[in-house]
């Protein structure tokens, strides 16, 4: 009864179609896309395919969480894609070229990701360069570094070495578990993603530092006058962004089982689109991690379906760009 009353009241408020679309547009879009693909593609609605979708979503989500943090402090990080590539190469190199065990293999890419974040914040926070341009430059630098290090070749088990012989190490099972393993029928990478989404969400919503991240982004001048160390929080945001890109790179290396050069490049656009779609989920109007996850679900489902419909990958870029434009337009409409 009470619920019906609320619903009628809601109706009386005459919420326009646009507002409903804005608030629940992403969820409706996800449902519509899933329904459509289920009806048109035979193998779409299967356990194998969904587990596959979820695995790729988990990587995009990790990248997008990092971008979300930079967006929250009113910044932007274009370098995440190449940081993913760097991290993929670094973990593969540690395993294959240096025969390291799991600890070092995880630590090296993570430290590299943090270093990229520190470099970004040095340029943006200390030297006060515009964030878009600074991270664009860093994106090229990092991409160049991983290409130079590998001379453009991927790193894989038993690869021949230039000085003769084959590589001493290989992708060890404990590392491969991250991207390929399952736990209770759920891919481990998906569990990792859910855990990190959950932790980030709690951190941003319920803790003091989380609140101050948002305050810094909302009005940096007012935040500074309120005694918030805004530069410190902006630095944290870029470091967290680098860190999440590094984790995504590890998962990616583990999932494909090789260190492919420039493997992270396409993830930048997916992550940016996911984070911006996330702003409009539930009509929150601010960058947020839960929304970001739904954003990457939408993109993941869409890309998977399109691939199964034999839409070539290069044409998928048109769709991705279109989605980003739509998400930006939605968040712009709400601001008005």
């Amino acid at each position: 009864m009470a619920q019906t009353a609320v619903v009628t009241k809601e109706k009386q408020r005459k919420t326009s179609l646009l507002q409903i679309l804005y608030k629940h547009g992403t969820l409706l879009a996800i449902l519509a896309v899933i329904t459509y693909f289920s009806m048109t593609i035979e193998q779409f609605f299967t356990y194998e395919n969904f587990s596959d979708i979820l695995r790729s979503i988990s990587i995009v989500t990790l990248v997008a969480i990092g971008i979300t943090f930079s967006l929250i402090v009113d910044g932007f990080d274009l370098s995440v894609g190449s940081t993913v590539s760097l991290s993929t190469i670094a973990s593969a190199a540690a395993l294959v070229l240096y025969r390291q065990e799991i600890l070092v293999t995880l630590l090296v890419p993570i430290l590299l990701g943090i270093a990229v974040g520190l470099l970004n914040s040095l340029l943006i926070v200390k030297l006060k360069l515009p964030d878009l341009l600074a991270t664009l430059a860093v994106m090229y630098i990092i991409n160049g570094i991983q290409l130079t290090y590998t001379k453009g070749f991927s790193i894989y088990n038993d690869m021949p070495l230039p000085e003769g012989g084959t590589a001493p190490g290989k992708f060890i099972p404990s590392f491969l578990f991250i991207g390929q393993g399952e736990w209770l029928g759920i891919p481990f990478s998906v569990l990792l993603m859910l855990f990190l989404v959950f932790v980030s969400h709690l951190f941003l919503t319920y803790t003091k530092p989380g609140r101050l991240f948002y305050m810094t982004g909302e009005n940096r001048e007012a935040a500074r006058l309120s005694g918030i160390p805004v530069n410190r929080y902006r630095t944290y945001a870029y470091v967290i962004s680098g860190l999440f890109a590094a984790i995504a790179g590890i998962v990616l290396a583990s999932r494909i089982g090789t260190g492919q050069v420039s493997a992270g490049a396409p993830l930048l656009m997916d992550g940016v689109a996911a984070a911006f779609i996330g702003i409009s989920v539930f009509g929150i109007g601010k960058p947020n991690v839960i929304g970001t996850m739904f954003g990457s679900i939408l993109i993941g489902v869409l890309l998977n379906g399109l691939t199964m419909m034999n839409v070539p990958y290069y044409a998928q870029d048109i769709i991705k760009g279109g989605i980003l434009v739509g998400a930006l337009a939605l968040s712009h409409i709400q601001k008005k």
């Binding site: 803790t207 003091k208 609140r211 101050l212 948002y214 305050m215 909302e218 009005n219 001048e221 007012a222 935040a223 006058l225 309120s226 005694g227 918030i228 109007g285 601010k286």
Partner: peptide, 23 residues
């Protein structure tokens, strides 16, 4: 420009200096 977080709630604006005592 300098005093308020315009898109945040009154509550969040009022407590921004007091969070330490609330955590």
């Amino acid at each position: 420009k300098q005093g308020l977080f315009m898109n945040e709630s009154v509550q969040k604006n009022l407590t921004v200096r007091l969070l330490s005592s609330l955590t």
